[in-house]
Design a protein around this nucleic acid. Structure first.
Lengths: 140, 140
DNA sequence: CTTGCATCCGTAGCAAGGTACGGACTGCAG
DNA sequence: CTGCAGTCCGTACCTTGCTACGGATGCAAG
């Protein structure tokens, strides 16, 4: 059972600064501070950090989580709607990201293939292109 | 034929600030400034920006391009080796990124499926979980 | 009482790739 | 001559998710 922020951090496998960051973001509830001394944490903080890690593993952003946390105070149906909305939006965003990366992947793979095919023929268009852009030397 | 930075920017479809950013990064050669007046650009700047856009489309980073540009002054064989190295490294990085995103994609899709399956049964574990983390209210 | 680690708190910095701003200047049209 | 758009230049800001720093305090052991 965690008592102080360092215990929470170690228990969740994150740094103390990270816990404090989550608190600033409002994702982890910061226990009230006694007028002197250290804050007293309980299991809730640990659970909240684990939920953050879970959500992060699914690709949700901190901003997404803030929205969902705000909605969690409302009725279950509303909350579920918000969850589905957020998850669907993030799914679309991630699909778009994957599509963009796949295009890049193909372009890079093609480039490598061309490189190997040209092999020793030594007609790299990029090298020619880059040096054509500095025509000072070729003009003499 | 571009004359001033604004012409270059319009011609390349980027902002003036972006051209200046590439100049600061050393990816676009900035023509010498006359003691008074405006710099005079030629086609080279346009070509360099187009190469940047191409490389970006393949997923190369600005840092990658800096390295390659530095190598372009050397012999062709050295340059080609550096290109292959950079491209291969970036390809690996992008594959890793795609793999990570695919995991997230699956997790999100699963979550949505679970949401729909639970449908009106109203037993969302996330809602329960979040509210269990604030047990103040349930204790009464 | 002193050492020494932990916490508290605000603030600043990192990566990446730009974007924006403010004040001074330039050059051209009216 | 004046107005106005465009440049020049340095610097600050943006996003995201942390991470680090520095000075002040707290607390327990020796």
């Amino acid at each position: 059972m965690p008592r102080r922020i360092g215990d929470v951090a170690r228990g969740a496998g994150v740094g103390v600064e990270t816990v404090r960051f989550y608190e600033r973001e409002g994702l982890v509830d910061q226990p009230l501070k006694p007028m002197r001394g250290w804050r007293e944490y309980d299991e809730a903080a640990l659970g909240q950090i684990n939920q953050i890690k879970l959500a992060q593993g699914m690709g949700l952003t901190i901003a997404d989580m803030k929205v969902l946390k705000a909605r969690a105070k409302g009725a279950r149906a509303q909350f579920c709607g918000a969850v589905r909305e957020t998850v669907a939006a993030r799914l679309d965003a991630i699909d778009a990201e994957i599509a963009a990366l796949s295009l890049k992947r193909e372009a890079l793979a093609d480039w490598l293939k061309q490189c190997r095919r040209r092999g020793k023929r030594g007609d790299c268009p990029l090298y020619a292109g880059i040096n054509a852009l500095a025509p000072k030397r070729s003009k003499r």
